[in-house]
Design a binder for these strands. Sequence first.
DNA 1: AATTTATTATAATAATTCTAATTATATGTA
DNA 2: TACATATAATTAGAATTATTATAATAAATT
Lengths: 151, 151
Amino acid sequence: MESLHYLLMKSHGMLSHKVLSEASKIGLTAGQPKVLDFLLKYQEADQKTIASYCEIEPATVGSILLRMENSGLVLRRQKNGNRRSLYVSLTDSGFQAASQMSAIFLAAETEVTQLLSPSEVKNLKELLTKICLVGAEHEKIWGDKDDNKVE
Amino acid sequence: MESLHYLLMKSHGMLSHKVLSEASKIGLTAGQPKVLDFLLKYQEADQKTIASYCEIEPATVGSILLRMENSGLVLRRQKNGNRRSLYVSLTDSGFQAASQMSAIFLAAETEVTQLLSPSEVKNLKELLTKICLVGAEHEKIWGDKDDNKVE
DNA sequence: AATTTATTATAATAATTCTAATTATATGTA
DNA sequence: TACATATAATTAGAATTATTATAATAAATT
């Protein structure tokens, strides 16, 4: 039996490669799909929250968002007189790209889980969710923004 | 329920961050732990095989191995008169580093699975293995099945 | 044997990400 | 208010990764 590290590296790598291959066809670069995924789900957030969700550094999110802003996918603006945080949201063009990505995510997930039954997929997601909860204790993302979308 | 893509990104990211944080303390950079993991398990291989295992591009493996060779972790040499493939193996120093990494992998896995029972961890690994098998069909590492889907 | 095709690695370049330090802003406290 | 501390984003520079093209070699075909 392979190590968990290997299995996660490989599973994530396979899914991610499929996603990025499709994403590049609609002009998106590597860091952008996960940001679009977040914004489609949560509408808007400051950059620090996006960094935490995407498991990348705040400075990296900054450079990704700069490119996305330049290509018209997102807006960054201040909110409620807070001049320290920048709130990020999708433009119409960004919403369109995010919707396309959503379909791409789904197709890639279907492909990599082709050997699993629906109940196994559900089981897998529940187990992975328990791993994510360990990190969530530090980050407090889960729980205050609750999305009850069903599969 | 979050998407599989998100759950894999987050789980892998959490585990990977813990691993890399420890790896940097023993002088290893981001790409090196997974290569050491492979070599500890399989002793030696050509660069293409390592790339496939690590889910990264062959050219990227080349640059990772160049750095590892320069820092004395691996050897690259020809084998059986084949001057096209380079066979990579661990030096003593590389074996030592790989052993340290092995303990680090284990500790990180234990930490991120702290909310799972042993049987749940086993279950999780089995499900992830089924995902990895889909990729193996294309890569013919673990066996050959003909696949009608081509991109 | 000679030619063609496929494979493996490398080089050069570009893009991405990370680390550390900096700037600006907000919050807390005397 | 003044000051210290904490927070959010950015900048600069280094390191890493991916992409594309090329060289060398092996294998296959004629």
